[in-house]
Design a protein around this nucleic acid. Structure first.
Lengths: 219, 219
DNA sequence: AACTTTCGTTGATCTATGTCAATTTGTATG
DNA sequence: CATACAAATTGACATAGATCAACGAAAGTT
């Protein structure tokens, strides 16, 4: 996922035109706003973030969450501006990859471009499958799949995958999954009654990985 | 959208490693299957195509449609294999860009890579906004937006945008929009009664561009 | 042209989930 | 600590759209 990072890691021959710096963010702080000019790509080091698009008449809609290890903002490279806003759900830190000038100059390394193509391609493929699944699934399936995806992502990053910290509110989840926040609440408490998860405040404990998988695949 | 094509157009200095050829396809013919090894990118010259992902328990799900001018399969470049199947909705023709070897060799032109990055980036951004909107919209909004998007795409390609040929079946639309085919049918006939569209067989006539826009934006 | 099969339309129900409303819990602020 | 404010839960109710079913219209096949 972070091949660009590896190429740009200090001491390993940073390509010219790339600036790498660390930055800490407070809870609720905005990384960048939609329509803002593209300046950098961010790699999440710690904390979590949400991406939102401004909904026409209504309030903003959540289109994604980012966890440590994720890259934020790559697709801004194409349009010269970001297509969504990103806000920190909790205190954390990011690595800022200042590659805005890379595309301007045209002078760039093959390796980085290849890495970008790979990442973008993967994101497109992922999006396709996610879009497809979200639309046709009922509330139970969406939430089960959501929890599983979160758990998988955190476990891939090293931390034990069955203890999750949910930085986002129920409304954020609801917005992301296309449900009412009341429905999210109801389904989560039912999952708890059924022994699939254990839920206290912001922390979620995965009790039955398989049970959730069954729910997600059912119908 | 087709910058790569311009670079690769015969007689204009085709970069080495790229093979360009024309190919005609019959109705129902498959361009490539999901999980198949990535070989080429296709540019639609005439006709229309649908992309499908194999749904686990259920039948295949439609994740997109391609019209003349669209590029098919770019995101396969990342994973080395396609992430969906593509089938022709009617007889047509495509330009095959045999750039599979381009990524292998590593020897490639900056221009093409930049073009690829741009296209992929645009696709990611588009996908985000589409996903976000589809989930929260009701049947009327989805269909109105769908028709408008189709009309816009065809009008951008030159042909008068208010006469559409719907190559896909109601089931295809339904699958793509996450609705039952009965609902698609009902909504379309209601749109017709309300004077928004005129519908006969496979051809759709846009009577009130603005009316549809209102429906799509409402709620 | 006759047949078969697929596709589209329309009607009658049923159900999942949105909406409204009230209460409780959690979190920030003085 | 007390107060105020935002988020979460729970219940009652309404409804958009799925599902089931029947039928009519195209389209492909012999």
């Amino acid at each position: 996922m972070c091949q660009v990072l590896e190429y740009a890691e200090p001491g390993s021959g940073v390509p010219s035109g790339i600036l790498l710096r660390r930055q800490s963010v407070k809870k609720g702080e905005m990384l960048f706003g939609a329509e803002q000019l593209f300046k950098a790509v961010y790699a999440v080091k710690s904390g979590s973030f949400k991406a939102m698009v401004p909904d026409l008449n209504r309030q903003e809609r959540v289109v994604g969450f980012y966890l440590p290890g994720d890259l934020i903002g790559i697709e801004g490279m194409a349009n010269q501006h970001y297509s969504y806003s990103v806000r920190a759900l909790e205190a954390g830190s990011v690595c800022v990859l200042d590659i805005g000038r890379l595309t301007e100059s045209g002078r760039s390394t093959e390796a980085i471009q290849r890495a970008l193509i790979d990442m973008l391609g993967r994101e497109v493929a992922l999006n396709h499958s996610q879009t497809a699944s979200l639309i046709r699934q009922n509330a139970d399936q969406r939430l089960a799949a959501f929890i599983l995806a979160l758990a998988l992502r955190t476990s891939l990053r090293g931390l034990g995958g069955d203890r999750l910290y949910l930085g986002m509110s129920r409304s954020d989840m609801a917005s992301y999954l296309g449900l009412a926040r009341e429905t999210v609440s109801r389904v989560l408490t039912r999952f708890q009654k059924e022994g699939l998860i254990r839920l206290r405040n912001q922390s979620l404990m995965l009790l039955s990985w398989d049970g959730l998988r069954q729910v997600a695949a059912s119908r």
